[in-house]
Design a protein around this nucleic acid. Structure first.
Lengths: 100, 100
DNA sequence: TGATTTTTTATACATCGTATGATAAATAAC
DNA sequence: GTTATTTATCATACGATGTATAAAAAATCA
């Protein structure tokens, strides 16, 4: 799993594991301070979905004010697992290393 | 910087910051338990070199026993910096998240 | 010289990062 | 009720990164 995929997954978890694309993008900006396009986020969400790392449900169309229906995503067990594994693989390599 | 690039860089640091391709590959296998091809490692070393994250010197040809000259790599300051930054970006996203 | 060993290089293709522009669907204005 | 505006996602495209296989280079051994 790539780094940006991890970041998207973590943003979703951080948002209570039930959020939609635009929110996720905002959360990423808020935490990393780095601007990101919507396209980047949606493409990645789509790939995560195809891997079975996330699923989604369509939101009610009639929300507050005009606009297309939202897709609410959630991280699945496989996604949590992959996230943890990726993290640990790197942690093992970092062990005892201090790049000064 | 991608995950495998990080892993290669960390393996190099771990080996005392003066190692050649085949050693690096072995160190990666030893630590992560995951098999990797030589091609993967060399391609990545080449990319890291072009980014200025590593440099190399050619080793003496006349070593122990036959074979082509080794290229001894070392991580440069830019590489250390990039490594740390990448790590911190992810750490910020992980903060307070426990994917159970 | 030719086989063998050690190491790197070339190449190729799949996956991931990331932006731009198009499209969809709802409400608001007139 | 057609058009503008708003909210949100989709389509597409292309460079960067992951990763393997096969070839080549350069040294020693027989």
């Amino acid at each position: 799993m790539g780094e940006f995929e991890q970041i998207v997954l973590l943003a979703l978890l951080r948002l209570g594991n039930d959020a939609y694309g635009m929110e996720i993008r905002q959360e990423i900006e808020r935490r990393t301070g780095r601007e990101t396009s919507y396209g980047a986020v949606y493409t990645t969400l789509d790939r995560l979905d195809r891997k079975g790392y996330v699923t989604f449900r369509m939101g009610d169309a009639t929300a507050e004010r005009g606009g297309r229906a939202r897709k609410y995503f959630r991280v699945e067990a496989a996604g949590r697992r992959a996230l943890t594994e990726t993290r640990e693989r790197l942690a093992v390599m970092w062990e005892g290393v201090s790049p000064r």
